[in-house]
Design a protein around this nucleic acid. Structure first.
Lengths: 192, 192
DNA sequence: TTAAATTATGGTCAAATGACCACATTTTCC
DNA sequence: GGAAAATGTGGTCATTTGACCATAATTTAA
């Protein structure tokens, strides 16, 4: 499990092999079964999580009980609740395994120490944060400005690999439309 | 104009008076007339901007020409296009003055130098970035999960000071609904 | 292997929403 | 001061969307 993370670090960061080892030393592996929660509403997010294999979703629940998915986290990506993690406040969101999923975790104290000790990790980390910032802006803009069909087409175009791994109702929950609307779009596209 | 920024720094950051001066030295003041652009679609965002007085909006234009507002920036806040600023790519968005607005600006090279020289500024800056990260997450979740009326009520609750400064069509463009829908909500709330 | 749960689709209907239009009022600018 | 633009409201109508329900196919689990 560590091996995959080391490969990731070699290709995606500027960390030296020694620094990579140092980061790995503090990692805790964990396996989530399908539908198992990594984080539940009301808890405090105390870890950074790197997904080795599998797929997670981060979602919130509206007043009427409907779920809305903020984010899918497949292998080779990171997940956490940024607000809960930084402020140590109770989260409004859930992170749950869509498939059986292997992850590596670092608790905040350990990761903060690594950030202080390894400047290259700090730079990489800042890069990730600003990236998630503008990815979020694009998602917001699409959510505001696109028709349901455009949103679906966008999703298919930008996440081809994810599509077959997701039930439609989750795609609908991600795009912010009812399952019915999504089915209608797919139906219309078939007959064209 | 610098004086207001110094006050802001004294109350909102942990910078020493000397560091505040150092930051101020590299700032360029600028005044935008109402409807004047700070940044236009297609340009590269080369500055960090602090709003001293006035109000800006960051918005994008959909395929059909409709505007959707990502963000309002009133006095004592910062604005830029994070993607364009960090990657030096052309922006898809616009930043435009809603009122006559006074700002301070730093170009990226200058600000990066300050970040390297003043660790407290770097920490403050990181704090801002992660904050905008989770504010963005909440906005996305509200946009996905709330009814138009809930969105409007949220907006009124969270931006009471902004309300009288904004024409309704901009609030509609921010909330992602038509002006008609917004008017209907207000009408219904009057008769209740 | 069989029963139960999940998933994808579709029918029907009511409600919400946007497009288009008009109008009165206020603000802005010459 | 007066013309032009911007603003807020509302009427009407067609369209989109969601709620509710049923069903078939597939997957999961006992």
């Amino acid at each position: 499990m560590i091996a995959e993370f080391q490969t990731y670090c070699r290709t995606m960061t500027h960390l030296t092999p020694e620094e990579i080892d140092q980061v790995c030393t503090l990692a805790t592996p964990r396996t989530l079964q399908k539908n198992e929660d990594l984080l539940k509403q009301g808890q405090i997010c105390r870890h950074k999580t790197f997904i080795i294999k599998g797929l997670l979703r981060s979602y919130g629940t509206a007043a009427d009980g409907t779920e809305y998915i903020l984010h899918f986290s497949p292998e080779r990506s990171w997940t956490l609740d940024p607000e809960s993690y930084h402020l140590l406040t109770a989260t409004r969101f859930n992170i749950t395994a869509i498939e059986r999923t292997d992850v590596l975790q670092w608790n905040k104290e350990a990761f903060d120490r690594l950030l202080r000790e390894i400047p290259a990790l700090d730079r990489y980390s800042q890069l990730m944060v600003s990236k998630s910032n503008y990815i979020g802006r694009h998602r917001l803009f699409t959510t505001l400005s696109s028709t349901p069909e455009e949103k679906y087409d966008d999703f298919v175009r930008n996440n081809p690999g994810l599509l077959p791994r997701l039930p439609l109702h989750m795609i609908a929950a991600y795009l912010g439309m009812s399952l019915k609307t999504l089915t209608r779009i797919r139906h219309a596209q078939l007959h064209r």
